[in-house]
Design a protein around this nucleic acid. Structure first.
Length: 619
DNA sequence: TAATTATGTCATTCG
DNA sequence: ACCGAATGACATAAT
């Protein structure tokens, strides 16, 4: 019966009795005669005999008695719930966060965990007919007034574009109910885009993280965290819901005006005591449409923080809360993997595991393998789980290097473990090289970057990253900076090492760090020199090419000049020879005479005949 | 997706 | 013989 729990109706939808507006309810619920009973009892002036409504007095009396019993039971249950609501806010958060039925109310059959199908099929038993009546009412109401009622029932008019929680509910319903107006989906899409843009703002993410850190320690979230919808397209609703959820506790952090809108609408409609109850009920309602999405919508922070299944692109966000968790919570480092693995998180997808930032720096990846294969947990496993992808994920949080460092520091002791043995430097390197990459590939391959965060990912590529050796040094708690280890002169380095009592693993690591660091610098210098050599050679090549061109040009010019001079000489010769005359005043024949110049500059006319004679004699 | 580039690392040689 | 620099070769990430 939908009208048997006044307290449940004291809130949002009380003004709209579904059983009166929806004929389907009367039919499907199968308790129309009970309703008539009630109506008859409530209004004695009905003017008609009871027999008009009843099949028989006997049946009605039985039903009436049963109805009274149920009402009494409901009333008691309500009292218990109200007591609990007044007891502690924390408990209420717990319930909403856990998404499970209220623990104390044994008389309450099924509420939030009731499968949606049960409430929808209309096959009410007498017990869950009462227990689910309000859910049914909510569903019917939602079906009858999908969007309008949800918003209009809240007195202060809320603008959909700035009220993610209010409008996201119908959006989620739309995923399950095709008859919804198209405008609703469009609105949700716009909201999605708007949220993507909003979430891409680092400041806003940080703002959200601060709040998330405050709720990290909420004890009951395992049921929420275990769900696998990491790629849920409704992820965009997480953060709005998060802000909504946390607006109740941390209004001061998030400046956005919409944070309190949904809260405000509820609080304006119902008394504060019923607020959480109403939230729970509304939650039940929406489990019919998209339970996962709705859960995510209301408890995103918990998911992000606890199970480490934060949407990968959001990995940068999760770093900070995790780090803060380490600092603020009584949890010990070793508790984290136990916590993550033992409380329902084992259902995580494998690739999601790798996606968790810092995961194999001691949390999830290396925590469990540690026990099974200790030798891999030594420096051999990429030096305590630090790998290229790890570095990438660690550095993924812009400006949170400190947080990451704290994180590493927190986990290093547990990482070393009792079975830790000093690796030989050579062995550690080779083994490290073997193990590191296969382990990181799944993490890389399992990326679920969401569009809003791709910019972050690109951005963080440019971030300065802690080198692997720096991470290793942190992991082994080397008391020196990598810079000192590498750049100190030999004497100073030896002196520094002698002052500190380091175990063999630390010594080996320090030696490797120094060797690698030196070699890294040497390689850089070598490459620099090589490049300089290449540049110098290229410059020299250009110079030589220019020289060659110049010489070729000069040779051409010289040749042409030589030809010109020869031509001039020939002309001069002919001119001079033409001016010569013999005793008879006749010109000399060029075939018989020629002009020849001696070394002292004198010019003589030499008869060619002699020449030919000499030549003939010589022959 | 393939090609190219940048960088880190190891092994080896050189001074 | 030892040590550190230099460098070739390779692997991997980034472009």
């Amino acid at each position: 019966m939908c009208s048997t729990t006044p307290a449940e109706h004291s809130g949002l939808f009380w003004e709209i009795p579904p059983q009166l507006t929806n004929p389907f309810f009367l039919v499907s619920c199968g308790q129309d005669m009970d309703l008539i009973d009630i109506l008859w009892r409530q209004d004695i002036d009905l003017g008609a005999e009871r027999e008009v409504f009843d099949y028989s007095h006997r049946q009605k009396e039985n039903e009436l008695q049963r109805q009274r019993e149920l009402e009494e039971e409901k009333r008691q249950q309500l009292l218990r719930e109200q007591e609990k609501a007044l007891l502690a806010q924390l408990q209420l958060d717990e319930e909403t966060g856990e998404f499970v039925p209220r623990p104390a109310s044994g008389a309450e059959p099924q509420t939030s965990t009731t499968p949606p199908e049960v409430t929808q099929n209309g096959l009410f038993t007498e017990e869950d007919g009462n227990a689910l009546s309000f859910d049914e009412c909510m569903q019917l109401l939602a079906e009858t007034f999908p969007l309008v009622e949800a918003i209009e029932a809240t007195p202060p008019p809320v603008e959909p574009s700035v009220s993610p929680p209010a409008s996201s509910v119908p959006a989620l319903m739309a995923a399950h109910q095709p008859p919804l107006p198209v405008a609703v989906e469009k609105t949700s899409q716009d909201l999605e885009q708007a949220w993507m843009e909003l979430l891409s703002i680092p400041e806003l993410q940080q703002c959200l993280n601060v709040q998330m850190a405050a709720d990290v320690l909420e004890p009951s979230f395992s049921a929420v965290s275990a769900r696998p919808e990491l790629q849920d397209p409704n992820y965009n609703f997480y953060m709005p819901a998060l802000t909504d959820m946390e607006a109740t506790t941390a209004d001061t952090v998030c400046p956005s005006g919409y944070l309190g809108t949904f809260e405000g609408t509820l609080s304006n409609t119902i008394p504060p005591d019923n607020l959480n109850q109403m939230t729970l009920k509304a939650l039940d309602l929406n489990t019919n449409f998209n339970a996962d999405s709705f859960c995510d919508m209301f408890y995103p922070g918990l998911m992000n923080k606890v199970d480490g299944n934060a949407p990968p692109a959001n990995s940068g966000i999760t770093d900070l809360p995790l780090a803060e968790l380490q600092n603020t919570s009584p949890l010990k480092p070793m508790d984290i993997p136990k916590f993550a693995l033992g409380e329902g998180f084992e259902s995580r997808k494998p690739e999601v595991n790798g996606e968790f930032p810092d995961s194999d720096s001691g949390l999830s990846l290396d925590a469990s393998p540690n026990a099974s294969s200790p030798e891999k947990s030594i420096s051999g496993d990429g030096s305590f789980g630090y790998s290229d992808s790890d570095m990438e994920e660690m550095d993924s949080n812009p400006g949170s290097v400190d947080a990451e460092s704290d994180f590493t520091d927190m986990f290093s002791p547990s990482f070393l473990g009792d079975g830790y043995q000093a690796p030989s430097s050579v062995g550690s390197q080779s083994q490290e090289a073997k193990v590191r990459h296969p382990k990181t590939e799944p993490a890389e391959g399992g990326g679920h970057d969401k569009p809003p965060f791709t910019k972050d990912k690109h951005k963080r590529r440019a971030e300065t990253r802690l080198s692997r050796d720096e991470q290793r040094a942190k992991a082994l708690q080397i008391p020196f900076t990598v810079d000192m280890i590498i750049n100190l002169p030999v004497d100073d380095f030896n002196e520094m090492m002698s002052k500190q009592q380091l175990n063999e693993a630390q010594l080996a690591l320090v030696r490797d760090i120094r060797r690698r660091g030196k070699n890294k610098v040497a390689a850089q210098n070598c490459r620099k020199r090589k490049m300089e050599n290449i540049v110098g050679l290229e410059y020299e090549l250009d110079s030589l090419k220019e020289e060659r061109e110049r010489l070729l040009k000069e040779r051409t010019e010289t040749g042409s000049s030589l030809r010109e001079m020869k031509q001039q000489l020939n002309s001069l010769y002919l001119e001079v020879f033409g001016l010569l005359r013999d005793e008879d005043g006749k010109p000399y024949s060029p075939s018989e005479y020629s002009l020849q110049q001696t070394s002292d500059g004198s010019v003589f006319l030499v008869p060619r005949v002699k020449k030919t004679l000499i030549k003939s004699k010589g022959n």
